[in-house]
Protein backbone atom coordinates (compact mmCIF):
# COMPACT_ATOMS: atom_id res chain seq x y z
CA UNK A 1 0.00 0.00 0.00
CA UNK A 2 1.09 3.49 -0.71
CA UNK A 3 1.47 5.75 2.23
CA UNK A 4 0.57 9.35 1.63
CA UNK A 5 2.35 11.83 3.78
CA UNK A 6 0.19 14.56 5.10
CA UNK A 7 1.48 17.77 6.47
CA UNK A 8 -0.67 18.65 9.43
CA UNK A 9 0.22 22.31 9.70
CA UNK A 10 -0.59 23.62 6.22
CA UNK A 11 -4.01 23.55 4.72
CA UNK A 12 -4.39 24.40 1.08
CA UNK A 13 -7.60 26.21 0.31
CA UNK A 14 -9.02 25.38 -3.06
CA UNK A 15 -11.77 27.55 -4.45
CA UNK A 16 -12.73 28.26 -8.01
CA UNK A 17 -12.21 31.69 -9.52
CA UNK A 18 -13.06 34.57 -9.37
CA UNK A 19 -11.15 35.57 -6.26
CA UNK A 20 -12.47 38.91 -5.19
CA UNK A 21 -11.13 40.83 -2.27
CA UNK A 22 -13.53 42.67 -0.13
CA UNK A 23 -13.38 44.66 3.04
CA UNK A 24 -15.77 42.19 4.57
CA UNK A 25 -15.78 38.45 4.93
CA UNK A 26 -18.86 36.68 3.61
CA UNK A 27 -20.18 36.22 7.09
CA UNK A 28 -19.69 39.85 8.11
CA UNK A 29 -21.32 41.06 4.92
CA UNK A 30 -24.31 38.82 5.46
CA UNK A 31 -24.87 40.20 8.94
CA UNK A 32 -24.53 43.78 7.68
CA UNK A 33 -27.24 43.02 5.11
CA UNK A 34 -29.43 41.71 7.91
CA UNK A 35 -28.91 44.99 9.79
CA UNK A 36 -29.81 46.94 6.65
CA UNK A 37 -33.09 45.04 6.31
CA UNK A 38 -34.19 45.88 9.85
CA UNK A 39 -35.74 49.31 9.00
CA UNK A 40 -37.91 47.59 6.38
CA UNK A 41 -38.99 44.96 8.89
CA UNK A 42 -39.91 47.71 11.37
CA UNK A 43 -41.85 49.62 8.71
CA UNK A 44 -43.77 46.53 7.64
CA UNK A 45 -44.75 45.68 11.22
CA UNK A 46 -45.74 49.32 11.76
CA UNK A 47 -47.98 49.42 8.69
CA UNK A 48 -49.40 45.91 8.65
CA UNK A 49 -49.32 44.70 12.27
CA UNK A 50 -47.54 42.06 14.31
CA UNK A 51 -48.78 39.13 12.27
CA UNK A 52 -46.18 40.18 9.68
CA UNK A 53 -43.41 39.53 12.19
CA UNK A 54 -44.77 36.01 12.49
CA UNK A 55 -44.61 35.57 8.70
CA UNK A 56 -40.99 36.70 8.69
CA UNK A 57 -40.10 34.42 11.61
CA UNK A 58 -41.72 31.40 9.94
CA UNK A 59 -39.94 32.19 6.70
CA UNK A 60 -36.55 32.52 8.41
CA UNK A 61 -37.12 29.42 10.54
CA UNK A 62 -38.00 27.21 7.61
CA UNK A 63 -35.20 28.61 5.45
CA UNK A 64 -32.61 27.80 8.11
CA UNK A 65 -34.20 24.44 8.88
CA UNK A 66 -34.20 23.39 5.23
CA UNK A 67 -30.59 24.40 4.77
CA UNK A 68 -29.51 22.45 7.85
CA UNK A 69 -31.56 19.41 6.83
CA UNK A 70 -30.14 19.30 3.30
CA UNK A 71 -26.57 19.79 4.47
CA UNK A 72 -27.06 16.98 6.99
CA UNK A 73 -28.55 14.75 4.30
CA UNK A 74 -25.58 15.37 2.00
CA UNK A 75 -23.27 14.87 4.99
CA UNK A 76 -21.74 18.32 4.57
CA UNK A 77 -20.76 20.83 7.18
CA UNK A 78 -23.80 22.70 8.40
CA UNK A 79 -23.25 26.29 7.33
CA UNK A 80 -26.31 28.12 8.59
CA UNK A 81 -24.04 30.42 10.59
CA UNK A 82 -22.95 32.19 7.38
CA UNK A 83 -26.25 34.04 7.43
CA UNK A 84 -27.24 33.41 3.80
CA UNK A 85 -30.19 31.25 4.80
CA UNK A 86 -31.22 33.93 7.26
CA UNK A 87 -31.18 36.56 4.50
CA UNK A 88 -33.12 34.35 2.09
CA UNK A 89 -35.74 33.80 4.79
CA UNK A 90 -35.91 37.49 5.69
CA UNK A 91 -36.22 38.59 2.06
CA UNK A 92 -38.88 36.01 1.27
CA UNK A 93 -40.84 37.02 4.37
CA UNK A 94 -40.77 40.59 3.12
CA UNK A 95 -41.93 39.95 -0.45
CA UNK A 96 -45.14 38.05 0.29
CA UNK A 97 -48.41 39.92 0.77
CA UNK A 98 -49.54 40.90 4.27
CA UNK A 99 -51.77 38.30 5.99
CA UNK A 100 -50.32 35.58 3.75
CA UNK A 101 -50.87 32.12 5.19
CA UNK A 102 -48.04 30.78 7.37
CA UNK A 103 -48.06 27.30 5.83
CA UNK A 104 -47.65 28.73 2.34
CA UNK A 105 -44.85 30.99 3.60
CA UNK A 106 -43.11 27.92 5.02
CA UNK A 107 -43.47 26.12 1.69
CA UNK A 108 -42.01 29.13 -0.11
CA UNK A 109 -39.02 29.17 2.25
CA UNK A 110 -38.40 25.44 1.72
CA UNK A 111 -38.55 25.82 -2.07
CA UNK A 112 -36.35 28.95 -1.97
CA UNK A 113 -33.53 27.20 -0.12
CA UNK A 114 -33.94 23.69 -1.54
CA UNK A 115 -34.58 24.45 -5.22
CA UNK A 116 -33.21 28.00 -5.35
CA UNK A 117 -29.90 27.27 -3.67
CA UNK A 118 -29.04 23.79 -2.41
CA UNK A 119 -29.91 21.96 -5.63
CA UNK A 120 -27.11 23.88 -7.32
CA UNK A 121 -24.64 23.00 -4.58
CA UNK A 122 -25.21 25.62 -1.91
CA UNK A 123 -24.16 29.22 -1.39
CA UNK A 124 -22.00 30.51 -4.21
CA UNK A 125 -23.27 28.09 -6.84
CA UNK A 126 -26.85 29.28 -7.23
CA UNK A 127 -27.77 30.92 -10.53
CA UNK A 128 -30.93 32.65 -9.35
CA UNK A 129 -31.70 34.66 -6.27
CA UNK A 130 -33.13 32.06 -3.87
CA UNK A 131 -35.73 34.34 -2.27
CA UNK A 132 -37.09 35.27 -5.69
CA UNK A 133 -37.20 31.62 -6.75
CA UNK A 134 -39.30 30.98 -3.65
CA UNK A 135 -41.58 33.86 -4.49
CA UNK A 136 -41.92 32.84 -8.13
CA UNK A 137 -42.97 29.37 -6.96
CA UNK A 138 -45.55 30.84 -4.59
CA UNK A 139 -46.83 33.19 -7.30
CA UNK A 140 -47.43 30.28 -9.66
CA UNK A 141 -48.75 27.96 -6.95
CA UNK A 142 -51.16 30.34 -5.20
CA UNK A 143 -51.88 33.17 -7.65
CA UNK A 144 -54.96 34.42 -5.87
CA UNK A 145 -53.61 34.73 -2.29
CA UNK A 146 -50.36 36.12 -3.75
CA UNK A 147 -52.23 39.06 -5.24
CA UNK A 148 -54.64 39.71 -2.39
CA UNK A 149 -53.40 42.76 -0.59
CA UNK A 150 -54.39 44.06 2.82
CA UNK A 151 -54.99 47.69 3.65
CA UNK A 152 -52.21 49.31 5.69
CA UNK A 153 -52.96 50.45 9.24
CA UNK A 154 -53.07 54.21 8.64
CA UNK A 155 -54.91 54.15 5.34
CA UNK A 156 -57.28 57.01 4.80
CA UNK A 157 -60.81 56.06 3.88
CA UNK A 158 -61.32 55.19 0.28
CA UNK A 159 -57.78 54.04 -0.37
CA UNK A 160 -58.18 50.71 -2.07
CA UNK A 161 -56.13 47.78 -0.91
CA UNK A 162 -54.93 47.16 -4.44
CA UNK A 163 -51.26 47.94 -5.07
CA UNK A 164 -50.59 51.34 -6.65
CA UNK A 165 -49.32 49.58 -9.78
CA UNK A 166 -52.40 47.43 -10.33
CA UNK A 167 -54.65 50.36 -9.42
CA UNK A 168 -52.93 52.35 -12.13
CA UNK A 169 -52.85 49.56 -14.68
CA UNK A 170 -56.40 48.31 -14.37
CA UNK A 171 -58.33 51.31 -13.07
CA UNK A 172 -56.09 54.30 -13.94
CA UNK A 173 -55.89 55.47 -10.31
CA UNK A 174 -52.74 57.40 -9.43
CA UNK A 175 -51.41 57.14 -5.90
CA UNK A 176 -49.72 60.29 -4.56
CA UNK A 177 -45.97 60.36 -4.07
CA UNK A 178 -46.06 61.01 -0.34
CA UNK A 179 -47.92 57.78 0.37
CA UNK A 180 -45.58 55.93 -1.92
CA UNK A 181 -42.46 57.17 -0.14
CA UNK A 182 -43.74 56.54 3.37
CA UNK A 183 -45.27 53.20 2.51
CA UNK A 184 -48.87 53.84 3.48
CA UNK A 185 -50.08 51.75 0.52
CA UNK A 186 -51.09 48.24 -0.38
CA UNK A 187 -48.39 45.81 -1.40
CA UNK A 188 -45.99 43.17 -0.19
CA UNK A 189 -44.57 43.76 3.27
CA UNK A 190 -41.14 45.04 2.32
CA UNK A 191 -41.91 46.88 -0.87
CA UNK A 192 -44.31 49.48 0.44
CA UNK A 193 -42.08 51.80 2.45
CA UNK A 194 -39.61 53.36 0.04
CA UNK A 195 -37.91 55.37 2.77
CA UNK A 196 -37.11 52.35 4.95
CA UNK A 197 -35.67 50.54 1.94
CA UNK A 198 -33.58 53.59 1.02
CA UNK A 199 -32.11 53.87 4.53
CA UNK A 200 -30.98 50.25 4.42
CA UNK A 201 -29.79 50.44 0.82
CA UNK A 202 -27.70 53.55 1.27
CA UNK A 203 -26.19 52.08 4.42
CA UNK A 204 -25.09 49.02 2.45
CA UNK A 205 -23.51 51.12 -0.28
CA UNK A 206 -21.80 53.44 2.22
CA UNK A 207 -20.06 50.60 4.07
CA UNK A 208 -19.13 48.91 0.82
CA UNK A 209 -21.10 45.68 1.11
CA UNK A 210 -23.01 46.44 -2.04
CA UNK A 211 -21.47 47.85 -5.18
CA UNK A 212 -23.06 51.22 -6.00
CA UNK A 213 -23.14 50.54 -9.74
CA UNK A 214 -26.06 48.12 -9.72
CA UNK A 215 -28.60 50.27 -7.82
CA UNK A 216 -27.44 53.43 -9.58
CA UNK A 217 -27.67 51.91 -13.06
CA UNK A 218 -31.10 50.39 -12.46
CA UNK A 219 -32.53 53.55 -10.90
CA UNK A 220 -31.08 55.85 -13.56
CA UNK A 221 -32.19 53.69 -16.47
CA UNK A 222 -35.67 53.10 -15.06
CA UNK A 223 -36.02 56.86 -14.60
CA UNK A 224 -34.90 57.38 -18.18
CA UNK A 225 -37.20 54.74 -19.71
CA UNK A 226 -40.18 55.92 -17.66
CA UNK A 227 -39.55 59.57 -18.61
CA UNK A 228 -39.42 58.57 -22.25
CA UNK A 229 -42.83 56.92 -22.10
CA UNK A 230 -44.23 59.69 -19.91
CA UNK A 231 -43.27 62.35 -22.45
CA UNK A 232 -44.82 60.33 -25.26
CA UNK A 233 -48.18 60.11 -23.52
CA UNK A 234 -48.48 61.57 -20.04
CA UNK A 235 -51.96 60.18 -19.40
CA UNK A 236 -51.42 56.62 -20.47
CA UNK A 237 -47.97 56.19 -18.92
CA UNK A 238 -47.18 56.97 -15.30
CA UNK A 239 -44.56 59.45 -14.11
CA UNK A 240 -40.96 58.29 -13.58
CA UNK A 241 -41.34 58.99 -9.83
CA UNK A 242 -44.32 56.66 -9.71
CA UNK A 243 -42.35 53.89 -11.40
CA UNK A 244 -39.46 54.33 -8.98
CA UNK A 245 -41.44 54.33 -5.76
CA UNK A 246 -44.38 52.06 -6.55
CA UNK A 247 -44.09 48.31 -6.25
CA UNK A 248 -41.03 46.36 -5.30
CA UNK A 249 -38.50 48.14 -7.48
CA UNK A 250 -36.39 49.78 -4.76
CA UNK A 251 -36.46 46.73 -2.50
CA UNK A 252 -35.49 44.48 -5.38
CA UNK A 253 -32.78 46.73 -6.68
CA UNK A 254 -31.05 47.25 -3.32
CA UNK A 255 -31.46 43.86 -1.68
CA UNK A 256 -31.93 41.31 -4.44
CA UNK A 257 -30.36 42.51 -7.68
CA UNK A 258 -27.16 43.22 -5.74
CA UNK A 259 -26.74 39.76 -4.28
CA UNK A 260 -23.06 38.83 -4.67
CA UNK A 261 -23.49 35.41 -6.18
CA UNK A 262 -26.04 36.24 -8.85
CA UNK A 263 -24.81 39.61 -10.12
CA UNK A 264 -21.97 40.37 -12.58
CA UNK A 265 -18.38 40.85 -11.46
CA UNK A 266 -17.10 43.59 -13.74
CA UNK A 267 -18.02 47.28 -13.62
CA UNK A 268 -19.17 47.24 -17.23
CA UNK A 269 -21.15 44.09 -16.59
CA UNK A 270 -22.93 45.70 -13.65
CA UNK A 271 -24.12 48.55 -15.85
CA UNK A 272 -25.42 46.15 -18.50
CA UNK A 273 -27.12 44.09 -15.81
CA UNK A 274 -28.78 47.14 -14.21
CA UNK A 275 -30.02 48.55 -17.50
CA UNK A 276 -31.32 45.10 -18.47
CA UNK A 277 -33.34 44.81 -15.28
CA UNK A 278 -34.97 48.20 -15.82
CA UNK A 279 -35.67 47.52 -19.46
CA UNK A 280 -37.43 44.21 -18.77
CA UNK A 281 -39.26 45.78 -15.83
CA UNK A 282 -40.63 48.70 -17.82
CA UNK A 283 -41.65 46.38 -20.66
CA UNK A 284 -43.58 44.14 -18.27
CA UNK A 285 -45.17 47.05 -16.41
CA UNK A 286 -46.24 48.91 -19.55
CA UNK A 287 -46.91 46.24 -22.15
CA UNK A 288 -47.25 43.05 -20.11
CA UNK A 289 -50.33 41.43 -18.64
CA UNK A 290 -49.01 41.82 -15.10
CA UNK A 291 -48.97 45.06 -13.12
CA UNK A 292 -45.54 44.32 -11.57
CA UNK A 293 -42.44 42.66 -12.95
CA UNK A 294 -39.51 43.25 -10.58
CA UNK A 295 -39.31 39.59 -9.65
CA UNK A 296 -39.22 38.32 -13.22
CA UNK A 297 -36.87 41.03 -14.47
CA UNK A 298 -34.28 40.26 -11.78
CA UNK A 299 -34.63 36.49 -12.28
CA UNK A 300 -34.24 36.87 -16.05
CA UNK A 301 -31.15 39.04 -15.72
CA UNK A 302 -29.74 36.57 -13.14
CA UNK A 303 -29.87 34.05 -15.95
CA UNK A 304 -27.81 36.34 -18.17
CA UNK A 305 -25.07 36.94 -15.59
CA UNK A 306 -22.69 34.16 -16.72
CA UNK A 307 -22.95 35.48 -20.28
CA UNK A 308 -22.38 39.08 -19.18
CA UNK A 309 -19.35 38.00 -17.17
CA UNK A 310 -17.94 36.18 -20.16
CA UNK A 311 -18.26 39.14 -22.51
CA UNK A 312 -17.07 41.83 -20.14
CA UNK A 313 -14.03 39.96 -18.88
CA UNK A 314 -11.09 42.38 -18.80
CA UNK A 315 -8.27 41.77 -21.25
CA UNK A 316 -5.43 39.71 -19.88
CA UNK A 317 -2.50 42.00 -19.04
CA UNK A 318 -0.09 42.21 -21.95
CA UNK A 319 -2.23 40.20 -24.31
CA UNK A 320 -2.22 41.31 -27.93
CA UNK A 321 -5.31 40.78 -29.92
Amino acid sequence: MLETKQNPTYKLELTSSPHIHSRWSTMQAMWLVVIAIIPTVIASVLFFGFYQLLIILVSVGFALGTEAAIKAMRKREITIKDGSGLITGLLLGLIVPPNFSLSSTALGAIVAVAIGKEVFGGLGYNIFNPALVGRAFLQAAFPVPMTTWAQPNFAADGISSATPLSAFKFDSIITNNQSLVLGNIGGSLGETSAIAVLIGGIFLIAIGVVNWRIPVSTILSLFLFASLFHTIDSVKYATPMFHLFAGGFLFGTFFMATEWVTSPLTAKGMWIYGIGISLILILIRIFGGLPEGVMYSILLMNGFVPLINKFTRPKTFGKVK
Partner: peptide, 22 residues
Protein backbone atom coordinates in the same frame (compact mmCIF):
# COMPACT_ATOMS: atom_id res chain seq x y z
CA UNK B 1 -55.15 21.55 1.62
CA UNK B 2 -54.76 24.33 -0.88
CA UNK B 3 -53.63 22.89 -4.25
CA UNK B 4 -50.34 24.19 -5.61
CA UNK B 5 -51.43 25.38 -9.03
CA UNK B 6 -47.83 25.46 -10.21
CA UNK B 7 -47.84 21.66 -10.35
CA UNK B 8 -50.40 21.56 -13.15
CA UNK B 9 -48.63 24.36 -15.04
CA UNK B 10 -45.65 23.67 -17.33
CA UNK B 11 -43.23 24.92 -14.66
CA UNK B 12 -44.42 22.19 -12.30
CA UNK B 13 -43.78 19.56 -14.96
CA UNK B 14 -40.16 20.63 -15.33
CA UNK B 15 -39.61 20.83 -11.57
CA UNK B 16 -41.12 17.40 -10.91
CA UNK B 17 -39.31 15.71 -13.79
CA UNK B 18 -36.01 17.29 -12.72
CA UNK B 19 -36.40 16.16 -9.13
CA UNK B 20 -37.43 12.64 -10.20
CA UNK B 21 -34.40 12.37 -12.50
CA UNK B 22 -32.16 13.59 -9.68
Amino acid sequence: YEPWLIMILPAGAFLTLGLLMG
